[in-house]
Write a protein that binds this DNA or RNA. Structure first.
Lengths: 129, 129
DNA sequence: TATGTGTATTATATTATCTAGTACACCTAT
DNA sequence: ATAGGTGTACTAGATAATATAATACACATA
């Protein structure tokens, strides 16, 4: 369900956060569905429970999950809500990257070609599902 | 000449590296031109000389500068060489970002609009030089 | 010779990350 | 009521990356 890359410079708890967001946005985890408990996920990933706890706390702070004492942690954000937020964030990243591309005098056409090619490649990959 | 953002999560030595690359790519620093000495830059930025040294060592490792004992550090990469390398790196970033955009189902048209707007905005800003 | 270079070394401080262990309050099924 | 599973809080320690501090040495040049 969740994969951790220990070689990455990205902290484990951030990888868990991103992973859960992906699961929600991809529709695997749905609103009000229960997440694995802190201890369970810690055991499955062979990671300290405190690290999972840190990820869950941050997810709750962002309003993406909610926790009930004695019950568990649950998805608090709908697929559409989270998708909208993340789309906005990605477009902001794209704007920053575009500014860098401009500064380095990369032709607009070259940038566009890359985007197009990736989109078409992804579409092809999807055709095999 | 160089600005450091102490609030940034990016380490100071990395900021120095990026800053010097920008100065080369923008044509401010030219091939074989001498960089500020380790001690001089350390004093100007009120930063420990070892931190500057770390940045310079990395720049030399990347082939962007070269150092001569007793002489100083100099630009070893031409504007065109470095620009080409960095353009390639940026386009790779763009490819990764495009894949994320696709996964989040951002319409290709929306992405394209952002890129276009940034390019036009930058062009306008430049007109005031 | 004096000064300014790059470079190397050792030590310390700080911060972020992660682990370890323990404890408590709460919920629920038995 | 009890047991077991929840979230949560707390203290402590290990480790790595980053940055500072203080010296020292070799080399180049005016």
């Amino acid at each position: 369900m969740i994969l951790i890359d220990y070689k990455s410079r990205k902290p484990i708890y951030e990888q868990i956060i991103d992973n859960i967001k992906s699961l929600i946005v991809s529709g695997v985890l749905k609103r009000d569905e229960q997440l694995p408990s802190v201890r369970q996920m810690a055991q499955e990933l062979a990671i300290n429970p405190n690290t999972i706890q840190k990820a869950y706390t941050e997810l709750e702070r962002e309003g993406i999950t909610y926790s009930l004492k004695g019950r568990g942690s649950f998805v608090g954000s709908s697929l559409q809500e989270l998708r909208t937020v993340q789309q906005k964030a990605l477009l902001e990243q794209l704007a920053e990257l575009s500014a860098d591309l401009y500064r380095l005098q990369v032709p607009q056409q070259d940038a566009w070609t890359v985007v197009q090619q990736v989109y078409e490649q992804q579409k092809e990959d999807e055709a095999y599902d």
